[in-house]
């Protein structure tokens, strides 16, 4: 851990975290002495790239409820399933198995039939979780209500029946929001808008018309007549992470950072493998030194002076101080 604190903004203190509130579904914390770009990366990664498990495939055997099969399947997908220790589960695409197995999926079955005159409600607790899974909590429907019911899946009237088999898979929210570990992530900085990153609309006075952030007391308000500091950068970030229940909120942050590091490690690995590739290629090009974007090739018009384009008495298309120009294709290395 040889991270150089001198690299950071602020008083080279290094990043600090202050947790202001936490419970089983929330964590509110302040992250200081990091750059906006890093804080935002953290927010993005915990919202979209932390893996969880959710129902992905539904085989409907019987569905005589009023809801269409795909409607029920969609509702099933959105039920949060326990995703703690998700590392023990493979992505189905990476798994050695043919279609699905206990190492990459969790099976859930649901069978409900209404026989009484009253409307029957089918809840997430009625899902029966298969035993072939890496540990005995992964894939369990998340049940947090005092009655222990879980999410409502559908309602059945007398004689209606629903029987289906679900396959839950590991995934990330970038693919589908059902895999999101978070319900919401609050991200805030500069409550007094000292940096002018916001342009607040107002009738007569922005300060009185806009409600104060709860973090406004945490930071000095701007002094009367204080000049705008155009060099200032944000350094205090207020996160309010609200979990969906499938992973504990503190673990979401931890997993998020881990996921970011996995991304980096993969790239460091890929970079070591192959980094010379200046070959023939018709796609986008690196802008070449000094080329100014245009001018090396005939621009499609000439002047009667025979001196069109960029070529001039200064040496036509000859090399610049930066060496040969890579445009066009010589037989050489480019």
């Amino acid at each position: 851990m040889d991270y150089d604190n001198m690299m950071l903004d602020g008083e080279s203190l290094g990043p600090t975290v202050k947790i202001s509130a936490a419970d089983s579904t929330h964590v509110d914390f302040e992250l200081t002495n990091v750059d906006l770009s890093f804080a935002n990366s953290l927010r993005r990664v915990i919202q979209a790239e932390v893996p969880t498990i959710a129902i992905d495939l539904v085989e409907v055997e019987v569905n005589t409820s009023v809801l269409a099969d795909e409607f029920v399947a969609h509702r099933l997908g959105l039920i949060p399933l326990d995703s703690r220790e998700i590392d023990q589960l493979n992505y189905t695409r990476d798994c050695d198995c043919e279609n699905s197995c206990g190492k990459c999926t969790v099976q859930l079955t649901l069978h409900a039939k209404c026989t009484s005159d009253e409307v029957m409600k089918v809840y997430a607790r009625d899902l029966i979780v298969g035993i072939d899974r890496p540990n005995n909590h992964i894939g369990n429907p998340v049940i947090t209500d005092p009655d222990g019911l879980g999410s409502l899946i559908c309602k059945l009237r007398k004689g209606q029946e629903i029987k289906l088999n679900c396959i839950a898979k590991k995934g990330i929210a970038k693919e589908h929001a059902k895999w999101s570990p978070t319900a919401a992530v609050g991200f805030e900085y500069d409550p007094h808008n000292k940096l002018h990153h916001l342009d607040l609309w107002y009738e007569t006075d922005a300060a009185t018309e806009w409600p104060k952030s709860k973090y406004a007391d945490w930071e000095e308000p701007p002094a009367e007549g204080e000049p705008f500091d155009f060099n200032a950068v944000p350094s205090r970030f207020y996160f309010e992470v609200e979990g969906a229940g499938n992973i504990e909120p503190d673990a979401i942050i931890q997993e998020g950072i881990k996921e970011l590091q996995k991304k980096l490690a993969g790239l460091i690995h890929g970079l070591g493998e192959n980094d010379g590739m200046n070959g023939d290629y018709d796609g986008p090009r690196s802008p070449d030194a000094m080329d100014g974007g245009v001018g090396w090739q005939d621009q499609g018009y000439t002047t009667p002076y025979g001196n069109a384009g960029n070529a001039s008495a200064w040496g036509g298309g000859a090399a610049t101080a930066y060496g040969t120009t890579p445009y066009g294709n010589s037989g050489g290395g480019w």
Binding site: M1, D2, Y3, D4, M7, G14, P15, T16, V17, F29, L31, V34, F38, L42, D250, I253, Q254, I257, K258, L260, Q261, L264, A265, I268
Partner: peptide, 14 residues
């Protein structure tokens, strides 16, 4: 590598 180290620091601190 620097971001990776920064991640370590933030994860530890958190």
């Amino acid at each position: 590598q620097d971001i990776e180290d920064l991640c370590d620091v933030v994860a530890d601190e958190f």
